[in-house]
Write a protein that binds this DNA or RNA. Structure first.
Lengths: 350, 350
DNA sequence: TGTCTTTCTGAAACCGTTGTCAGTGGGAGT
DNA sequence: ACTCCCACTGACAACGGTTTCAGAAAGACA
């Protein structure tokens, strides 16, 4: 490995001078040093710089599942910010496991200047230890009990649930089911709450057998949708709590030859790249994704600026938006033939 | 920050002894040291360890686009290996840009023990410099001119192209178009070569206006598909060179109200999670994704074992597989009514 | 008890870089 | 020619660990 001493020797100066030159100070023998650097192909050692400065210029990013298009988009947004600010991203998957998250965070604390975390559960207290280590932490997508002490970029999940509920009620549905995600996560809990309470407000009751809780994975959406369809009186509309569960549910509906939206309407949380191309095109509650990553990373990097270090934590809450496509329609047997036929044109008619 | 000296002082021993204890050596005052570590919440500084040992236990992963489900899956596979071996992943996106790749690699070389790279172009020579820096490098998905000096995990793209071609020819198509990816990348070039030459072998000629080259992005697939459809004599079958271009092409076909596969058959390279749920379910050339990541990372970590460090580079080439779904069918007007009607049942009939 | 061996220990050097500090040398001003 | 000033420089000491080396303590044996 070529060190700053090698460069110094070759240029006939001291290492200190080389260091000064590299940091942009004016130096008499700049040409000779530059030449030495080029000839030797010198690059300073990041480890040595970190040791001296106490900064790694690296940000830890911890997500439950990088193959979830939502998190992939969030990470991409974060990456665009770190790149511009000369930071790097140390990435870790937790597979939705709190234990794994503990390990990852304990390890990261010694290697990064800050962390963006989508916590596995709301009860997890490990992140609080991160704070003890004086490593700034920002939550994205999910909050924490005690999370008010941290910056966060969230989405109005309760309101998203409400939008979904009101959409289905507006179409005339009364037998409405929900397939929710982990109830120990912010999005899991809030989307369900928003959905169920908006239904209640509209006078629609959700019986226990229609109120299912899974774990945000595709398989979970698939299994729970199957169980709903096997009910003596299956629902006519279905709300799924994230993109993967929506796909799982849609697969189940296909496998059971159920006409969507002719027999069952489906509305999901989170849009998909392929949303418009699916059978049928999905009606979803959409939210910013890349933008969430950008905002979270900005919030984090801000903490490195002494001017803002001590600011009280900020919670940015973004709005969701209903995207109406063709997977929702009035319930079967309702008077509205026009709508129903228009909407089911592409499905197998009942 | 609490250092090894603080722990030593508290335990009444020297830093050397604490270090020995932490590395598992037998030490007389182990209880006292453990107590001091716990009470102070001590964690060794990664920077200091790296500086001394010359190892960072970090692997650089460079991909063109993390939001491409293929690369997300590959990264996930890599992550499962690094986790088990106590390594971490420093992630970077290049946005398919060689310049960006240069910057990223130059930066990474000083911060990681090894790199897995999906190169932006085959001509790029920067990776060779990485070798000068004595940082092991493994290619994944894409190779390089001069890449024979490196380990690589690839896919038999030529054969994948052939499979697609033979499938379409087998259905009776003769007006067949290809929407290819960047020709300065391995997959872009090989998939097109395999496809076109297999068609030629079957006696099917691909005129220039059917042989389009784009850039692996959805928008590119969309635009090129539109241009094909506006031809005086549009093709009856279409091969798209990756998942995103396939989606783009499918969107174009939808927008132009073209019946798939009634009027035009579509076969893509790379399966999608949503593949079976699309309108119509996509026929694709599939290949291992997570597994590619796993293999690439294993190949890389192997290089750290002195036993294998000097081994001649290995190229692992995985096979592709045709998954027949409903987006391909005999061309319109062909005698085979049974197949055509079966296959187009879900499309808008012509 | 004395010698020899083994096990454990602390001092100190080192990894590569940066910041401090006390110069050194050159130029401007008288 | 002499002083003063200022820009620039190199030696040196950190940063927080690990490793070497030599020596101390403890155990084995006669």
């Amino acid at each position: 490995m070529v060190t700053i001493h090698d460069v110094a020797a070759r240029a006939g100066v001291s290492p200190a001078t080389v260091s000064r030159f590299l940091r942009g100070q004016h130096v008499r023998s700049s040409e000779k040093i530059q030449a030495a650097v080029d000839e030797l192909g010198y690059w300073p050692s990041a480890a040595a710089q970190s040791l001296k400065s106490g900064r790694t210029y690296t940000i830890g990013v911890v997500v439950p599942d990088i193959t979830n298009p939502y998190f992939a988009a969030v990470v991409k947004g974060m990456e665009s910010v770190t790149r511009a600010e000369n930071y790097r991203i140390l990435l870790a998957n937790t597979d939705e496991s709190s234990d794994r998250e503990d390990d990852v965070l304990a390890d990261m604390v010694r290697r990064v200047d800050g962390i963006v975390l989508a916590p596995a559960t709301e009860q997890d207290q490990t992140p609080l230890h991160v704070r003890d280590a004086d490593v700034p932490l920002v939550f994205v997508d999910r909050d924490l009990a005690g999370g008010e002490h941290f910056d966060a970029v969230l989405v109005n999940n309760v309101d998203g649930g409400r939008q979904a509920a009101e959409h289905l009620v507006g179409l005339g549905h009364t037998r409405i089911a929900a397939i929710s995600g982990n109830q120990d996560t912010t999005p899991g809990r809030c989307r369900r709450e928003g959905f169920v309470s908006a239904l209640a407000a509209a006078g629609v009751d959700v019986p226990a057998e229609y109120d299912l809780v899974g774990n945000f994975r595709e398989e979970s959406g698939y299994q729970l949708a199957l169980s709903l369809l096997s009910l003596p009186e299956p629902p006519t509309a279905l709300f799924t709590a994230n993109n993967l569960m929506t796909l799982g549910a849609l697969k189940a509906l296909h496998d059971m030859r159920v006409d969507v939206p002719g027999q069952v309407s489906l509305i999901g949380f989170d849009d998909l790249d392929t949303g418009p191309l699916l059978r049928p095109p999905l009606t979803v509650i959409d939210r910013p994704m890349v933008e969430q990553g950008v905002l979270a990373m900005r919030l984090l990097l801000r903490r490195f600026d002494p001017q803002y270090t001590g600011d009280t934590p900020r919670h940015i809450v973004l709005d969701t938006k209903l995207i109406e496509r063709a997977s929702t329609a009035p319930p079967p047997g309702s008077g509205d033939r026009r709508q129903a036929t228009t909407r089911t044109r592409r499905g197998r008619s009942a």
